[in-house]
Design a protein around this nucleic acid. Sequence first.
DNA 1: CGTACGTTTGATCTTTCTCAATAATGGTGG
DNA 2: CCACCATTATTGAGAAAGATCAAACGTACG
Lengths: 250, 250
Amino acid sequence: MSSEEHPLIFLLRQLELYAQLPEEDRRLVLQLPHRLRRLDAGSYLVREGDRPTHCTVLVKGYAFRQKVTGNGSRQILAVCIPGDAVDLQNMFLDVSDHSVQLLTQCTVADVPRDVMQDVVLTRAAIATAIIELTLVDASILREWVVNIGRRDARARIAHILCEFAVRLESRGLASDHGFILPMTQEQLADATGLTSVHVNRVLKSLEAERLISRQRRNIQYDDWRALQDAGDFSRRYLHISDEDVLPQDY
Amino acid sequence: MSSEEHPLIFLLRQLELYAQLPEEDRRLVLQLPHRLRRLDAGSYLVREGDRPTHCTVLVKGYAFRQKVTGNGSRQILAVCIPGDAVDLQNMFLDVSDHSVQLLTQCTVADVPRDVMQDVVLTRAAIATAIIELTLVDASILREWVVNIGRRDARARIAHILCEFAVRLESRGLASDHGFILPMTQEQLADATGLTSVHVNRVLKSLEAERLISRQRRNIQYDDWRALQDAGDFSRRYLHISDEDVLPQDY
DNA sequence: CGTACGTTTGATCTTTCTCAATAATGGTGG
DNA sequence: CCACCATTATTGAGAAAGATCAAACGTACG
């Protein structure tokens, strides 16, 4: 197996986005004991109320965080992409406050919780990277609050499309002018506080305005600048340095 | 000055909610070098885009995190209460992604950023507490996303009132059946993704239903059980153990 | 005692939701 | 390969929650 295919390589790369790791720490990360699992779309990685025993890393595929309200409606809180350590949120807390469910068929790696805690508490560089990663997740969450609380439906959808574009491109998971949206319109609705019917209408109108075009889940941004404007989008909150990101203004 | 009045005592207490600190670490926290400042309501502690040099601890008074959208509307992201370390969010990131503004006249303590980083990276117990604190903040933020994205106005307001009640009581900052809301109806609107006009109407209707009563900012919850039900509120996401909290079902 | 800010109220308008039906699409077993 | 089924996407009509606009009323504070 080439190092390119190492299951934890995406995790390592993500950590290195945030902190320079000494060679020893890099080895340590790749040698983290773990168990690989392949799971179907819809499987739960974590359920609200669980006491997690592992920290799960997404090796391949997509997942999302969610909570369900008392009257049964769902809010999606974040979308996880390959390399994301899904349980950092819970690693230091006893009980999980939300669920994580797979969007697609996935390969995941389970790292024992105590090993992960130990690494974080003894390796300063890794601790720094993990803390920064957690803070970036929080920053994204803050932007979601703004998006849902203070932007109209058109801007919300444009904004979340921009976010996916930048995040996916920063991991080399998008093509030049577009990407495959890893979710249904109903899930998009649950992520933006709208209904699927309205999401559909907004998508169609963004298409009619020629900001995007699409073939089913395949989104092309035909006018990246205009899409960002429509979504009031600035990549600052993602804390990704510019050189890590591909999409220029073209 | 008695230890009760030590400016960092609220910070220490908050850390100890999340991790057992050895005596040495407790002393270390209280002896953190800091500069005290007294600031008026409306002052900024952090501005979006700043490169913070200090980690500011709220000694007395209230503050809130906010972001402003391109068209000028504001979203409040969190309310900070005494003992909160306002800049943990930014301590490990170079550029602040949101602003922090004072709700009331405040006393704050500025701790140099590098001192704080050093403490976190060398004292495992303090690191654990700080990480957990950050994760609890993220959990609260997730609940805010749910609140704004998937609950109607009445539930949103009821929910945020419940959250304040529990958080304030857990710090001994509330009286038996109520508390002083540290914000205007307009700020409440910016926290819940509503308009101040609508917040006013909802408050009046909660009053008419006898779930709360109020004299200006002084909120009394007359029927705590019903208020929780109306707000679909469960304290789990606050990660406060039950014995730390006062309000029982009475 | 007047000014600024916060609260309250009414009338009207818009965005988004709800309900309902239809059309694509992809996957499955035969 | 084809027919069938379950999801997902699309469209229309009507309803409702909440926004907007405008004005009046309180209250604290200099």
